[in-house]
């Protein structure tokens, strides 16, 4: 595939993402009129639903989808493992453990605009990142495979603690924990968008700067170093930047699965492995995919919303399998 062909795929993806942005806020149980576009401050139900519920939710889905997909791209390159994502390294289970503890203990407070649950989630995610990196560094084994295995072990350990706490808690807390673990965008508001935007935007900027290093690191550390990359410094920077970005996403939206692991592979099939194209492609694909999934999640039944994490896997799984087996010379 030539660079020209890849650019065309990217332009198509930009168009598709714009289409998602322009159409999805209009889709929902309640039909809204065009007038709301010109009266964002109006007290009418239509305007409130459109501007205070649907638009923030679409923006949140775009940000979370872009960040999760990008996180997968970076971790799969850094660890040279097709199953690596920040989730694999325990970020999601650390955040989930924090939220579970907050829910079981019933702590309620707000600190610098963050609820106790959000703060517990962020602290849990940071704890798991620090543990994975700290243990690897203390043992002098910071190789990708050791860190990956360490992350998987910590992830299992935290998941077991979550199950234990869930087992010991009352039915109400247990249900709330389960619902949070499925990943959900229904709590979207302009505040949550403003909370998440700095994490995702800074993550995108940092990763985009390092696209050439990611290409080389995805081959081998020795190749990257012999071509002039400061391997350890770059790996550390990208590891923490992406882990923090994903920690921010999980804090606001819960652990939405599938996007981070499959969106990068789907984009590799569509546009190749060069991170100069793969990074924007995965941002656009992740953003539009999660937005579409969330639109479906809130409209699939008339009685209640389905958690978006369920929809991403149900829709994305067959789509990925179709791409994987229908395209010759698939890079996956």
């Amino acid at each position: 595939m030539t660079d020209r062909a890849k650019s065309k795929v990217l332009v198509t993806m930009v168009g598709f993402t714009l289409l998602c942005i322009l159409t999805t806020p209009w889709l929902g149980q309640q039909l809204t009129s065009w007038d709301v576009l010109f009266s964002p401050k109006a007290d009418k139900v239509d305007a409130i639903i459109f501007w205070q519920i649907r638009v923030p939710r679409v923006v949140l889905a775009l940000l979370a989808g872009a960040g999760l997909s990008l996180g997968g791209v970076v971790f799969q390159a850094l660890f040279r493992n097709p199953l690596a994502t920040p989730f694999t390294l325990g970020v999601a289970s650390g955040a989930s453990l924090g939220v579970t503890i907050a829910m079981v203990t019933g702590i309620h407070f707000t600190l610098v605009g963050l609820s106790a649950t959000s703060l517990a989630s962020l602290l849990g995610a940071i704890l798991s990142i620090a543990l994975v990196y700290g243990v690897a560094r203390a043992s002098g084994k910071t190789s990708p495979s050791t860190m990956l295995l360490g992350g998987v072990a910590i992830s299992f350990f935290f998941s077991s603690l979550i199950l234990l706490l869930q087992y010991l808690s009352d039915a109400g807390s247990s249900f709330r924990i389960l619902h949070w673990l499925m990943g959900d965008l229904s709590r979207a508001s302009m505040d949550s968008v403003l909370q998440l935007a700095p994490f995702v935007i800074s993550g995108i900027v940092i990763v985009s700067i390092f696209h050439k290093e990611l290409n080389l690191l995805s081959i081998t550390d020795d190749i990257a170093a012999s071509r002039g990359v400061d391997v350890h410094r770059t790996q550390k920077l990208l590891f923490f930047a992406v882990s923090l970005m994903v920690a921010g996403i999980i804090t606001v939206c819960g652990p939405i699965g599938f996007v981070g692991i499959m969106a990068p592979h789907i984009c590799r099939i569509l546009i190749g492995a060069n991170h100069r194209f793969l990074i924007p492609a995965s941002i656009l694909f992740g953003a539009s995919f999660l937005t579409l999934c969330d639109t479906l999640a809130r409209n699939i039944t008339s009685t209640a919303e389905v958690p978006v994490g369920i929809v991403t896997a149900i829709l994305g799984g067959p789509f990925f399998l179709w791409l994987l087996f229908s395209k010759k010379n698939s890079p996956v």
């Binding site: 050439k212 290409n215 002039g228 060069n274």
Partner: peptide, 13 residues
């Protein structure tokens, strides 16, 4: 899965 040109270009880093 990089193409030959992509891989060779990377060595100019």
């Amino acid at each position: 899965s990089f193409t030959a040109t992509e891989f060779i270009n990377m060595s100019r880093y």
